[in-house]
Every structure is written in C-alpha cells, then in structure tokens.
Amino acid sequence: MASELEGYINHTVTVFTCEGRIIVGTMKGFDQTINLILEDSHERVYSTTGVEQVTLGLYIVRGDNVALVGEVDEEVDKKIDFTEIHVEPMGAVVH
C-alpha cells in the first residue's frame, strides 16, 4: 500500500516533519510506514530573520516523523526569492 507516493519517486519533494522542520530533496524510496529516502537533501530553516539552507545529503526520514510530502515544481521553486521571506518557523505537530 502507500503506492500513492510512487509518482513522487525521483522527483524533488519537500517534507514537513512532525517537529516542524522542512527538508527538500530527491525522493529515492519509501515504504508502507512512509519511511523516506531523500538524496541530495537540504533543510530550509525558516525564521523571522530569513531562510537559511543547510545541506544534509542522503537522509532517511522515519515515517512516524513525516507530516506531509509535497511535490516541488522546480521551475516555480527556482523563482522564489527566499530573501523576501520572513516568517515564524512551522509549528510542531501536536497529537
């Protein structure tokens, strides 16, 4: 099951974790608990002082900790001016 994610394989995805972190990378694999394998990933750290990008590399995100997986439109993504974005970090998931 969870074949819903099949279409995102080898696409750039943005992953929101339950603690409010945002990781962007190429999705190389997943399983039924939504464990994810991300290649060439980086974290986008949003804050009121701007957006910082931190390189992470090859990452496995445990399914428990995944809130949302978004398919990134790279053309649109390249055009985003991150210097203009000043927001509070995304909140953590409260169960």
Partner: peptide, 30 residues
Amino acid sequence: NIKLTDISVTDPDRYPHMLSVKNCFIRGSV
C-alpha cells in the same frame, strides 16, 4: 493518508513554505 492536487494554503502569508508545491501527500496520522 490523503493525496491532494492543485493545493493552496488557506493562510499563505503565515505559511509561504509551500509556494512551489501543487500536489501533496498527507500522512493520515497528522
């Protein structure tokens, strides 16, 4: 688990994190 297409965030000023995302997969538990 839910897959949505053609998404928009209802408060884009507070959440500009998904500007380049049109389709997403949401884990049922969240």
